[in-house]
């Protein structure tokens, strides 16, 4: 990838949003470039999910602008370029009658278009995506019969099947055991490094995020932006927490300075 001239995939400028009188986001400015593994951290209720809804145009901005691939969010139409793994993806109805393959194939629906059947090419993309996340062998299993970690891989495959250029994951490790979380992060690293996928990972798990990403967005009404590709310091993380709270580093590859 040409390091000198990176394309800006997602850009927020002075974004503010309130629910009624309640200010949720104040003056958020940051950008994600092609090939980034960006992390967004902050405590629960800090406005992370609101930020995601704004990015997808599901809420209207009070102030500022959001640009996706250089196009203003209000005018953006190419949603298939952005993959989304929702918060609580695995809290769906566990009795829902759908196989792994059926769930992953949903990722191709927008590309195929309304009133159209999936094509051979679509099915191949679904198979490939299931292969990447290591779930191809379980393609005919019912989604509800899988473990939380396996289900999460299927939801990532669903997003990948659309062959997105940017993948946004909202709190994807909630309800997944520690071991599955570990292999989940190695899957994300693989997607980012080997397939060159641009990732935006939203999480309240500061430790795991800080350890894996090259850019960090801290959200706590105020939004701060940190390039941590060359190392990380306490100030990069403390932004997301109330003043005076101690950071306890644990299991880090990179020590907190």
């Amino acid at each position: 990838m040409d390091k000198g001239k990176k394309e800006t995939v997602l850009e927020l400028s002075n974004v503010s949003f309130s629910y009624g009188e309640n200010l949720v986001l104040d003056d958020a400015t940051f950008k994600v470039e092609r090939g980034d593994f960006a992390g967004m951290i902050g405590p629960n209720g800090a406005g992370k999910t609101t930020l995601v809804k704004l990015i997808f145009g599901l809420l209207a901005l009070d102030r500022g602008s959001i640009r996706l691939f250089g196009t203003d969010v209000g005018k953006f139409k190419e949603w298939q370029r952005i993959g989304y793994v929702p918060q609580k993806a695995t809290s769906f109805d566990q009795n829902f009658p759908a196989t792994v393959f059926e769930v992953a194939s949903m990722g191709r629906f927008p590309k195929a278009g309304l009133m159209r059947q999936l094509s051979r090419e679509d099915y191949m993309a679904v198979e490939k995506a299931l292969g990447v996340v290591g779930m191809l062998e379980l393609r005919n299993s019912r989604i509800g019969d899988l473990s939380g970690g396996q289900q999460q891989r299927v939801f990532i495959a669903r997003a990948l099947a659309a062959e997105p250029e940017l993948l946004i994951l909202d709190e994807p490790t909630v309800g997944v055991d520690a071991e599955a979380q570990h292999s989940f992060y190695s899957l994300l690293r693989q997607l980012n490094r080997e397939l060159g996928m641009t990732l935006l990972l939203i999480s309240h798990d500061v430790g795991m995020v800080a350890k894996n990403v090259n850019k960090l967005v801290c959200v706590n009404i105020k939004v701060t932006f940190h390039d941590i590709s060359k190392g990380i310091n306490k100030a990069d993380l403390s932004c997301a927490y109330p003043a005076g709270m101690e950071l306890v580093p644990h299991h880090h590859d990179r020590a907190v300075k």
Partner: peptide, 15 residues
């Protein structure tokens, strides 16, 4: 099918 399974994601996908 998509909207019955997961309305939020279907909406995010532009359905």
């Amino acid at each position: 099918f998509y909207a019955s399974f997961d309305e939020e994601s279907a909406q995010a996908a532009g359905i």
